[in-house]
Every structure is written in structure tokens, then in C-alpha cells.
Design a protein around this nucleic acid. Structure first.
Lengths: 178, 178
DNA sequence: CAGAGCATGTAAGAGGTTACATGATTAC
DNA sequence: GTAATCATGTAACCTCTTACATGCTCTG
């Protein structure tokens, strides 16, 4: 169900084709809700049936035609309703922690290598986020409400990556000095 | 596929019935890999077919009989192999961040209430983790390798909750002073 | 003229959720 | 005697992933 709201959240910001949405889910929203284009097209069909979004066929001469989707008044209403409903606790899924949990099966050095790879990934992701912060949110104090909200989602991403890095820097020495 | 490895990770630590596993997935491993008992029973069936686990029927007079599952040598081998394979990046799914992303649709005060509820949840989860830390890992320096690994998964959980709390404490005032 | 990007889709299969079902024992 | 715990399962349904498919335009 949440995918529907993730799509609405993007459309609340600006109209999109399915293709545009898929790209957004490959960055920005995709950082906290992943979806493939197949999921998106299916969900858009459902949302249109429900009347939460509507589409307009845009004829293009230079490119393939496209369906431009927009959120409807009903869709906005449903989004607002959902925001106030209790938020479902996230069910975390971290392959890395499964590996660590079973880490007793392999030598510490091997785990250290696994963690170093992970550390590198989080470092790159942090850099990506920080580049977005510098480029798109140079003065957060002056942001209007809607953009301030989006800025805060980015801040969460940044803090999350920093937290992973700090943990890696605790875990790697801990495994090394055995 | 990862569910299989999550089950193996638990069985690598100690033999379990399906029921025991389901309870573990309701705490400990469940903190980073959620699964219901139905998923677990189905997966155990598959794993037994593959020969990665084996089961023994335990007849009990006071309670229902149970199947006690144990990891096989092949299962251990597969687990070790998987640990060294590249770790799939986690696809995050955070309902809360969808809500914030679309936060422009509702007044800031309403979002603040949503965040305060979330903050409370993370605070409770942190307390749960810290209680486990105090009770089960009073002196982490002296832990043998396998338990040290499990301890580090707990440390990740703690840091993650702390990071969410710190973010809430940034986001709430940011929304309030508009 | 090859490859990347635009734009949309089908189909099959794996993974996950929810509801229903059974039946015994133990604790209050 | 009512609820919780132990213990295992079926069935239906929804969601997600992966692979395959088409065809056009623009860029180098």
C-alpha cells in the first residue's frame, strides 16, 4: 500500500509520466522507497481506477508519446489522511547484519573485509547526499515549508550514513584486536 | 533468498524448532530481518530439501511434539560462501519519510505530532536494546569471537536508534520555528 | 551506425502478509 | 474456565523482482 503513497508524494510535488516516476525512484524518493518501473506502471493503473490520479496523453513528435499523471483532489485528501494515520514500524532487512550474526563461522579477518566494503559503500552514499545538500539546499533556514520537509528527508539519509560509518569504525577495530 | 541465510544464521548458533525460530525472529535476528512463522516453516521445508538443514522429530509427553532443526555441514558451507559474496545494498522502505516528503500538504504542527510519535518509538526501541546490552554483554572486551559478532549487531541497532532520535531532535524544531 | 535515453508494457516466479485452523498443556 | 504458550500447518492474496519485449530518437 505504501508504494501508492510514495507515488502520490512525488505527484503532489509535480506531474510525472511513469518513466519520470521511475527515475525519481532511482534517486530522491528512491533513497527511502525503492520501486521498479514495472511496479510503478501497475500502481499507476490502480490509482487511476481509484480516481486518486488522472492522466493526460501527451503527443510528442520528437519522442514517444507519454501519459502525464497528476494527483487529483481525492488523491490529495487520501494522502493527507494517511499522513495522520499511525506510521507502521519499518521492518528492517539488513543482509550485512545476518552475515555478522553468523560471523562465528568465519575468521575475523574475512568479516573485516566484508565490513570494509560496506564502509566504502556508505561513504560514497554519504558523499552523494552531501553533494545534493550543497547543490539544492544551500540555505535551509530560508526554505518554504514543502521544500523544508524534503530537505529533512535528505538530512535523515545523511545522518543514517554517518551512523553506519561510525559503527563500521567501531566494529572493524573490535574484530581486528582479537 | 536472504531469509534462508537468516534462518541458517540462527541454526548455526543453536538447534531450533520452527516455533523457536519464529520467536527469534520476533526479537534478536528479527531486529534486522523480519519473518512470520508461515514464511519460516515454508523456508525450512525448502532448506531441508536442499540438504542445508536436517530435522529430528522430538516426541514430548507434556507438550506437542516438535521438529528440531539443525544446520548441516553443507548448510554451513553455503553460509560461509554467502558471507563472502558481495552484500546486496539494502532497499530502504520508510513510510515516515514518504509522509515527510509530501509534508507540504499538511500544516507543520501536524507533522510535528507525527514526528513526536516516531521519536517516542525510537526511544523505546533504544531502551530495549540498551537493556539487552546491559544484561547480555556486560563486558564486551572479553567476548569470544562468535558472541562478539552478535554483540556488534546489537551495537548497530543502538547506533541506528540514536541516529533517529538525533534526527528527530533536529527535525521537530526545524518544523516548529516556521 | 552503435549505444544511450525515452516510453511503456507482459509474464513468471519469488517473497511476504493475513486469515483461518487445530489441539494440547499450564498458569491465574 | 479463560487466556497464554507450545507447536505446526493450509490457503488466498498481495507485493516485488527479474527477464523479456518493442520501437523510436538523439548523440558521438
Amino acid at each position: 500500500m505504501s508504494l501508492a503513497y510514495a507515488i502520490l508524494a512525488v505527484l503532489a510535488d509535480h506531474d510525472c509520466s511513469g518513466y519520470d516516476l521511475a527515475k525519481q525512484f532511482d534517486g530522491s524518493v528512491g533513497y527511502f522507497w525503492a520501486a521498479t518501473h514495472q511496479q510503478i506502471y501497475r500502481e499507476l493503473g490502480r490509482l487511476e481506477e481509484l480516481g486518486w490520479v488522472k492522466s493526460d496523453r501527451i503527443e510528442q513528435s520528437d519522442r514517444p508519446n507519454k501519459n502525464l499523471f497528476a494527483i487529483t483532489a481525492l488523491g490529495q485528501q487520501e494522502m493527507v489522511k494517511w499522513i495522520s494515520e499511525p506510521t507502521k514500524p519499518t521492518r528492517h532487512k539488513e543482509d550485512l547484519l545476518i552475515k555478522l550474526f553468523a560471523g562465528g563461522l568465519v575468521p575475523a579477518e574475512q568479516l573485516v573485509r566484508v565490513l570494509q566494503r560496506e564502509r566504502e559503500r556508505h561513504l560514497q552514499q554519504l558523499k552523494t547526499y552531501q553533494a545534493i545538500e550543497v547543490k539544492h539546499f544551500p540555505s535551509p533556514e530560508t526554505l518554504p515549508h514543502p521544500h523544508r520537509c524534503q530537505y529533512l528527508t535528505l538530512r535523515q539519509g545523511i545522518r543514517n550514513e554517518q551512523s553506519w560509518l561510525a559503527w563500521c569504525d567501531e566494529a572493524i577495530p573490535c574484530l581486528e584486536k582479537q
